[in-house]
Computed example of a mutant assay.
Amino acid sequence: MSGAETLGSRTMSEQFESLVKRMRSEVPECVAAGVIDMSTGMLLSVETVGSHPAEVLDMLAAATLDLFQGRNVVMIEGIFKERRGVVSDHHYFQEILVNSENLTHLFLRIDSADVVVAVVVCRKAVNVGMLFAQARHVLKEHGRL
């Protein structure tokens, strides 16, 4: 998936930038949003309220990769699929919520691009129900990536 690939009249890179901007503006208490390619572990687009060192953003991308596709996670997904009789390459875990001391992080796989995860970081005061509702709404409205 390269920035040169196009879907419709916009490049994938432009679509990811648009998605990140919408997440930042429409998700309550949002302080940062990004899009990560799970096949490479690369941060494809990011927008934050402040400047963050590149190494911190790179670590977020690497942590997201481990969170969704780390060895133990893949093993758990395999066990769940086996026990439920599911034969598919589709990933079992689609959304993960992580609360840190001051922030709430929501990681969502993008349905139309299973190898892409959107990340939304909000202040801890966020209403978690509204966080999920708005993030899902933005992804749905954003359409196929």
Rank of each mutant, 00 (worst) to 15 (best):
G3P: 03
E5N: 10
E5I: 09
T11C: 06
S13E: 13
E14Y: 02
E14I: 00
L19F: 07
K21E: 15
R22N: 15
E29N: 11
C30F: 03
C30K: 00
V35A: 15
I36F: 10
I36G: 08
I36Y: 10
M38S: 02
G41K: 02
L44I: 02
T48V: 07
P53E: 09
P53R: 14
E55C: 02
V56C: 07
V56H: 09
D58M: 06
M59I: 03
M59Q: 11
L60M: 14
L60P: 01
L60Y: 07
F68H: 10
V73M: 05
M75Y: 05
M75G: 06
I79E: 10
I79S: 03
I79F: 03
K81R: 10
R83K: 10
R83H: 12
G85L: 02
H90F: 05
H91C: 03
H91T: 03
I96G: 02
I96T: 05
V98N: 04
V98D: 00
N99Q: 10
N99E: 15
S100V: 06
E101V: 06
D111S: 14
D111I: 02
V119W: 02
C122N: 05
R123C: 08
K124W: 08
V126Y: 09
N127P: 05
V128T: 13
F132C: 01
F132P: 07
Q134Y: 11
A135E: 04
A135H: 07
V138N: 07
L139N: 10
K140W: 08
E141D: 12
E141I: 05
